[in-house]
């Protein structure tokens, strides 16, 4: 179900999806050539691609719910920020510490929390996100509270750092592509098949000998890892982190991207992230209305196109039938 093969490559869907890909490619090339502010927008979209891809593994493939992945992004982002800006570490080891921290937290939190279902699971994960936010606000000696941490060094290894906007863009493109490719690899592997089986029916999966609890935990940890990497990338790309960056709006925005692109598909996260990042930028005057627009868009999508752009061909076919 819900896999790359069945949704993105089925006959009628092709034209619309290739058109979208074409538009995305044209946009990327145009941005690269023209430079300026659009580059920052695209960088942002690529970072979110990594986060949403992780969310997709947990929610799309495994059929679970997490409202708390901003917690893992915050752990990654703050580890990178504190270790490089305050303690002068290299970006790579700092990011790895953040990754390890997020994995450890996901293991410790996931073990009890993933036994829950439905609204219990939703509320427990939401609470985790809020707790980490609270820690970021309160633990002022390390996180500097609401002020946030600025002056985070750009990404790089040793003396080789990426300082130019275009260089960073290429780097983030590679990172996002790796995220998507690894998600595709996971989806096709034994692991991915187990995830999808657990999403379909836990009882049936169990009957096939799949240790559902264990695979849910693995999916949770993998998606937490993506979130932590996205958090670290954000810290270095923007050079600034604060609790607000990793607040509840981040959760809603990542869900919007996931649903716009198409939950459960491989490429959906990238498409959703680019569209949701670019659209508000084309209406810059409405900056204040951004979260409002994300929320409203999410509601409309959930009601009318629950599988995102992937379901557009279907809607189109239905509309044609009705008007014919």
């Amino acid at each position: 179900m819900n896999s790359f093969n069945t949704i993105w490559a089925n006959g009628r869907g092709n034209l619309a999806t290739w058109l979208l890909w074409g538009l995305a490619a044209v946009f990327v090339v145009y941005t690269f050539a023209s430079g300026g502010y659009l580059i920052a927008v695209l960088q942002f979209a690529l970072i979110y691609t990594v986060l949403v891809t992780g969310l997709n593994i947990f929610m799309g493939f495994t059929g679970q719910v997490s409202f708390g992945h901003n917690a893992f992004a915050a752990i990654g982002g703050y580890s990178s920020a504190v270790l490089t800006a305050t303690y002068g570490w290299e970006p790579l080891p700092a990011g790895l510490v953040g990754l390890a921290g997020a994995l450890l937290c996901a293991l410790v939190i996931g073990y009890p929390v993933l036994r829950l279902r439905g609204h219990y699971l939703a509320m427990a994960t939401l609470a985790i996100g809020l707790i980490v936010y609270e820690v970021a606000v309160q633990w002022q000696s390390v996180t500097q509270g609401y002020m946030g941490i600025s002056g985070i060094a750009p990404i790089g290894i040793g003396r080789f750092t990426i300082t130019s906007d275009r260089g960073l863009l290429v780097f983030l493109m590679i990172a996002a592509a790796l995220a998507l490719l690894s998600a595709a690899g996971i989806r096709r592997s034994r692991l991915g098949r187990a995830f999808v089986a657990a999403a379909g029916s836990e009882d049936a999966a169990r009957a096939l000998g799949i240790d559902v609890a264990r695979y849910k935990l693995i999916a949770f940890m993998i998606s937490a890892a993506y979130a932590a990497i996205a958090g670290s990338l954000f810290a270095h790309a923007v050079g600034f982190v604060s609790p607000e960056v990793f607040g509840l709006p981040m959760v809603v925005m990542s869900f919007t991207m996931l649903y716009v692109g198409g939950i459960g598909t491989i490429a959906g996260p990238a498409l959703g992230a680019i569209i949701i990042s670019v659209l508000p930028e084309s209406f810059r005057t409405f900056k204040d209305y951004q979260d409002l627009a994300y929320g409203a868009a999410l509601i409309v999508i959930l009601i009318y196109a629950p599988r995102g752009l992937a379901s557009l061909p279907e809607l189109w076919a239905r509309w044609r039938r009705r008007s014919a």
Partner: peptide, 21 residues
């Protein structure tokens, strides 16, 4: 439409954000 409970939660959470903003 018989949406799943999770979709309902997500939609109401989005409504919360909309009202807040």
């Amino acid at each position: 439409r018989g949406s799943t409970m999770f979709v309902m939660i997500l939609a109401t959470l989005a409504a919360q954000i909309v009202v807040e903003r």
